[in-house]
């Protein structure tokens, strides 16, 4: 899977918090230090595999909920509470992915050195994300997204990702405060229409 994928809105991972995301079933822990920097890691603690997105941010580190191992912004383990004296070997680290914030959204890439040229530009802010229970391709087709996973329309940005097969998350951002409600309304309308079509087909 190559390219950038919008996995959440910037406003949904405030400073000092962690949140879960999925990309085609791959579990990702998003977290933001109190310095505002965003991180996207594999959602799996190197110790015993606990989900890091259940963790909490302490002293600029992400601490695992299970035994409290702390991982720094560079994803290396900095502190093991059961062995406070130990200088933790640098090989113990979480798996970090490439992450960018653009237009009020958090974009993740699983490529090692992805090009930034396919990301939208500008100062939009997030409106809301919503689940659409249809396959990603169905959502992209009805949004006329062609090869991309985002589309700018008037003063709004619509972007989609697939948390798991058969599900789409639709993320909405707007360049103007006044446009937020209308953008949210359009997104809800689209979701209701697509899900109703699916119901009819299944019936």
């Amino acid at each position: 899977m190559t390219g950038w994928f919008p996995v959440a809105l910037t406003m949904d991972v405030p400073a000092g918090t962690a949140a879960p995301a999925r990309l085609s079933g791959k579990e990702i822990a998003l977290w933001r230090g109190v310095d505002g920097e965003i991180h996207a890691w594999e959602d799996r603690c190197p110790h015993r595999g606990m989900r890091l997105s259940f963790g909490f941010v302490r002293n600029g580190n992400l601490a695992c909920l299970y035994h409290g191992w702390q991982f720094g912004a560079d994803s290396t383990c900095r502190h093991i509470p059961a062995h406070p004296e130990l200088r933790v070997p640098g090989t113990i680290r979480a798996t970090a992915y490439q992450v960018q914030e653009r237009c009020g959204m958090i974009w993740v890439s699983l490529d090692e050195t992805p090009s930034l040229s396919h990301l939208p530009e500008g100062e939009a802010s997030g409106v809301r994300s919503l689940l659409v229970q249809v396959p990603l391709q169905t959502a992209r087709t009805s949004l006329n997204m062609e090869a991309s996973n985002w589309k700018q329309q008037d003063n709004c940005l619509f972007a989609v990702h697939e948390p798991a097969v058969g599900l789409t998350m639709l993320h909405v951002a707007s360049w103007t405060v006044a446009g937020q409600r209308e953008a949210a309304r359009q997104a809800v309308q689209l979701r209701d229409r697509l899900e109703a079509i699916k119901e009819t087909v299944l019936a």
Partner: peptide, 14 residues
Amino acid sequence: VPLDLYPAVRNFMR
């Protein structure tokens, strides 16, 4: 229920 699908719910809980 996977909470990654419900960001406003997570915000409320926080």
